[in-house]
């Protein structure tokens, strides 16, 4: 009886193995769900919908954006991690869900490396360091000098974990101590910076740009590795006195771990093609993301490196994981 059962299982497995490649070739045979672990209307949602539209055209199947906001992306990412690994559920992950959350939550219900099959990086969004126009520093170097002269007296605002971690990383790499004032949104923090309640803020370039152009705020540096063609006058933080400092928000596509290799390859090929389309690239840039398609192996290495980086920063900054 037992051997009969085992035989059955083996037979089934054999049939499955035989069927799988063919099944992957037919992929997708039904609509695909693209999970966004954030509310509708936000930056990642806008990007997800733009990609979903093109993906649906090229795959010939509907791609439905499923917004699962809440708990800093934990809720939606958990849904994706536990979804069937058949390629019909994928997620647009972010620096929070797949980079810093493991260091911020002690009981995270998913593992960004173990539970996911990377597809491709989507894009990166650099931050800029903003101060009031009257602040007595015109460069990153001068700013560090000011902060060293007045330890603990300079307030920085952060409306997101990402902004906070970027600033804490700056703190620990320069040996200064800026005081953290928490906010629920970057918009509130930006208002308080302009009103003079705060002295400095790390803000995504795209939302900071209008205030810089209007002369309401002064920019000291950008956190990307290289200067951006869009804003060639803004020096990188690394070149301006903090060598090695690099920090960006990012978005990337993942499938649940265990998805057939062929499916990952197919999705990678299609999404990379989409990210290289001029109109999609423009759409991404308009919300602050520089498109950066990669191979799934590159994304795997990138995710691991990011998780390790945030673990280090969070530990050095003394942030207690929840």
């Amino acid at each position: 009886m037992k051997s009969l059962l085992r035989g059955c299982v083996l037979l089934c497995a054999a049939v499955m193995a035989g069927v799988f490649p063919a099944w992957a070739q037919n992929y997708p045979a039904k609509p695909i769900r693209l999970i966004v672990a954030a509310g509708a209307g936000g930056t990642s949602d806008v990007i997800a919908r733009a990609i979903a539209q093109k993906l649906a055209e090229s795959l010939g199947q509907q791609v439905v954006v499923d917004n699962r906001p809440g708990a800093n992306g934990v809720i939606g990412t958990e849904v994706a991690a536990k979804a069937a690994p058949d390629g019909y559920s994928i997620i647009l992950g972010s620096v929070s869900t797949h980079g810093s959350n493991p260091s911020l939550y002690s009981r995270l219900p998913y593992d960004p490396v173990r539970d996911f099959a990377p597809i491709t990086l989507v894009g990166q969004a650099p931050y800029v360091i903003l101060v009031q126009p009257s602040f007595p520093a015109n460069s990153v170097k001068e700013f560090i000098g000011q902060a060293k002269a007045k330890p603990g007296q300079i307030n920085y605002g952060a409306g997101t974990n990402a902004a906070r971690i970027g600033t804490e990383m700056f703190n620990s790499m320069t040996g200064i101590s800026l005081t953290h004032i928490p906010y629920k949104s970057t918009a509130q923090a930006l208002t308080d910076l302009m009103a003079g309640q705060l002295q400095v803020i790390f803000e995504p370039l795209v939302t900071a740009l209008p205030h810089i152009k209007a002369g309401k705020l002064k920019v000291l540096g950008i956190t990307s590795t290289r200067r951006l063609p869009m804003v060639p006058d803004i020096p990188t933080v690394a070149e301006a006195g903090v060598p090695g400092y690099e920090y960006s928000g990012w978005l990337a596509m993942y499938a649940p771990a265990g998805v057939p290799r062929e499916v990952v390859q197919k999705l990678n090929a299609e999404i990379v093609k989409i990210l290289n389309l001029p109109d999609i690239a423009d759409r991404l840039r308009s919300v602050g993301f520089e498109p950066q398609p990669t191979s799934s192996e590159q994304l795997a290495a990138f995710t691991k490196a990011e998780v390790a980086k945030y673990a280090r920063v969070v530990k050095e900054a003394g942030i207690q994981p929840e």
């Binding site: 806008v46 949104s185 209008p210 152009k213 309401k216 308009s286 919300v287």
Partner: peptide, 27 residues
């Protein structure tokens, strides 16, 4: 006038403006 959203709906309006290539702000 400032490009600052006073509530979540206004934050979405900022999103709508950015998509259209308008940088919300004093300008």
């Amino acid at each position: 006038t400032l490009g600052i959203p006073s509530n979540p709906v206004m934050a979405l309006m900022i999103g709508a403006m950015t998509i259209q290539g308008i940088a919300p702000g004093p300008q």
